[in-house]
Design a protein around this nucleic acid. Structure first.
Length: 284
DNA sequence: AGGTTCACCTTATCGC
DNA sequence: TGCGATAA
DNA sequence: GTGAACC
């Protein structure tokens, strides 16, 4: 599950390898990997181009090319990049190989094959729907309040909505709500300004922590050098169902919200306005 | 507007 | 050891 | 992780 911290880590570690190098060959072995056009056409757009920068927007990686075009990648659930100096075949899950004129090879692996490659001239047509970057100065608690303060959806579902804020996925949405002390099922409009400020602050704190640990590996996430991230050891609630809450000791609960497993502490995240709302709601 | 379910794929794990 | 269900 | 179909 590569989310913002994992994608950002991959971006940082790819830069020293690919920026300044020129693409020599593009070998697509699983045609559906390329969205919207044939692998041959996609390859022709990349071959001969020099990579001038690698950026990130939400969970997307953007390779800026010297002709103004962009090779955009979304890793979805199990996509990985692997860097190698020599030429290798890769295993059965390697669906694309990019080689460079100056040497070196970038492999794309993806066990579940959900990831996608795009080529665009105007990145806004692909990324324009995304909400603000949570780590930018421009993203304020007021902006978050504007986006969720009037909505009926559970706050967990709102944090997963990439139009609200770009880059959170299942792991970090659960961690953020625990740190903020908010029940994941609370409708957005029930949060006070103070609670929205806590969520806003928690998003930044959790993402910064995870970034410092180079992301979370609990199944398939790997960095370009195949190393694992380290943040999974610091997860407070994610995939800790039944384990004691790190703050109060109550057993962590798991429920399903918006189709995703959601983990929370019923004591630390159960108190406050929501108790009365929930009780009066179910009683009447 | 929101929820649920399914589809897209493969593998690891779990219970029996 | 193997099979189906389930989760990720 | 995301998008589409359906309630």
């Amino acid at each position: 599950m590569p989310e913002l911290p994992e994608v950002e880590t991959i971006r940082q570690e790819l830069i020293p390898h690919v920026v300044g190098r020129t693409i020599r060959t593009v070998d697509i072995r699983y045609p559906p990997l390329v969205a919207g056009e044939t692998p041959a056409r996609f390859a022709s757009r990349l071959i001969g181009r020099r990579v001038v920068d690698v950026r990130r927007r939400g969970k997307y990686l953007i390779f800026d090319l010297d002709d103004g075009g962009h090779w955009v990648v979304h890793l979805r659930m199990t996509g990985q990049f692997r860097w190698g100096e020599g030429e290798t075949e890769g295993d059965k899950h390697t669906h694309a190989r990019i080689s460079f004129v100056e040497g070196g090879e970038l492999h794309y692996r993806d066990v579940r094959k959900f990831g996608r490659f795009y080529w665009v001239r105007d990145e806004e047509e692909l990324l324009g729907h995304l909400g603000p970057e949570p780590l930018s100065e421009a993203w304020t608690a007021e902006a978050l309040a504007q986006a969720i303060g009037h909505r009926r959806a559970p706050v967990k579902a709102l944090l997963l909505d990439q139009r609200v804020v770009a880059g959170l996925g299942n792991i970090y949405a659960d961690e953020v709500l625990f740190v903020a002390g908010i029940h994941p099922q609370r409708p957005g409009y029930t949060l006070s300004d103070e609670e929205i400020r806590r969520v806003h602050e928690a998003v930044r704190a959790v993402l910064e922590e995870a970034l410092a640990a180079r992301g979370s590996t609990f199944r398939s996430y790997r960095r370009p050098g195949a190393q694992q991230g380290g943040y999974q050891h610091q997860h407070r609630v994610f995939r800790r169902t039944g384990e004691p809450c790190p703050v109060c000791g109550a057993p962590i609960q798991r429920v399903r919200i918006a189709g995703r497993s959601t983990h929370y502490c019923p004591r630390c995240q159960g108190a406050g306005i929501w108790d009365s709302v929930e009780k009066s709601g179910t009683a009447s």
